[in-house]
């Protein structure tokens, strides 16, 4: 099995998710099975193939350097779970 409980822990940390001790084993098994299946794509020879990240040949899409927006603070903060003054607030980030 490739996906160990440690891998689950690592990936969960990257995704900022908690996975409880009890869940870890089940999640590891699930992911392992899915990744095993995903690896079937190795059956296709892709030697020399350019990876395709964009499907259409669209390129050079630009905007001009112009200021078009106004102060929009109230709208921006409208959905904030915690607001102090005119800012979003989070638990302190420095000790």
């Amino acid at each position: 099995m490739r996906i160990t409980e440690e891998t689950v822990q690592y990936v969960a940390a990257l995704a900022k998710l908690n996975v409880s001790e009890e869940e870890k084993n089940k999640v590891a098994k699930d992911l392992d099975r899915i990744l095993d299946y995903i690896e079937t794509m190795n059956g296709l020879d892709t030697e020399g193939v350019e990876p395709m990240s964009h499907v259409l040949p669209v390129k050079n899409v630009f905007r001009e350097d112009e200021v078009s927006n106004q102060d929009n603070r109230e709208e921006l903060l409208k959905n904030a779970p915690q607001r102090i003054g005119d800012s979003f607030a989070v638990p302190k980030t420095v000790e």
Binding site: E66, V67, N69, N72, R73, L77
Partner: peptide, 21 residues
């Protein structure tokens, strides 16, 4: 004059969260 991906000003300073979209 404007930000990299939107039309907000890049001016330094300003009241918090007023140069945003």
């Amino acid at each position: 004059k404007s930000k990299i991906f939107c039309g907000c000003t890049t001016q330094f300073g300003g009241d918090p969260n007023t140069h945003c979209c």
